[in-house]
């Protein structure tokens, strides 16, 4: 049943936000602390547990997968209700932060990928089912 997956996702979502609120109260922040992250970790662990038990049929997975695939559309909708007019007043901040962040990260990637031992290689005809279209 597809609703089992969605209900599982909903339970993790609510529980994560609740724990995030509790954590926030515990450390004295008037905010939800990492609720979404906690919910994600719960969902990952539950998926592993249920898969191990064989209690995760395709339909149940689809109940979560649909919402995962809705991620970009929801982000597009989120972008459409931001206060862009106000943001543009601080224009150079966004541009400079982004350029500086990407530049610094590219440097670190260049260093890390050349350091240490790299014994990984591509197996012939590796899983190419992953498509960038999944992202949209």
């Amino acid at each position: 049943m597809i609703i089992y997956g969605t209900a599982l996702l909903a339970a993790c979502h609510l529980m994560g936000l609740f724990l995030g609120d509790l954590l926030g109260a515990a450390i004295g922040v008037k905010a939800n602390v990492g609720g979404v992250g906690i919910a994600m970790l719960m969902l990952i662990s539950l998926k592993i547990y249920l898969n191990g038990k064989g209690w995760m049929p395709k339909e149940t997975e689809a109940g979560v997968g649909f919402w995962g695939a809705m991620y970009i559309p929801v982000v597009v909708a989120m972008a459409a209700n931001q206060n862009v007019v106000a943001a543009l007043k601080g224009g150079p901040v966004a541009l400079l932060s982004a350029i500086a962040a990407v530049g610094a990260c590219a440097l670190v990637i260049a260093v890390l990928s050349r350091s240490g031992k790299d014994d990984t290689a591509f197996p012939p005809a590796h899983s190419l089912e992953f498509t960038e279209e999944q992202d949209i």
Partner: peptide
């Protein structure tokens, strides 16, 4: 909806 969709993406890991 935003948080719901984000949590769901954890499933792809």
């Amino acid at each position: 909806f935003r948080d719901f969709a984000i949590v769901a993406t954890a499933f792809e890991v």
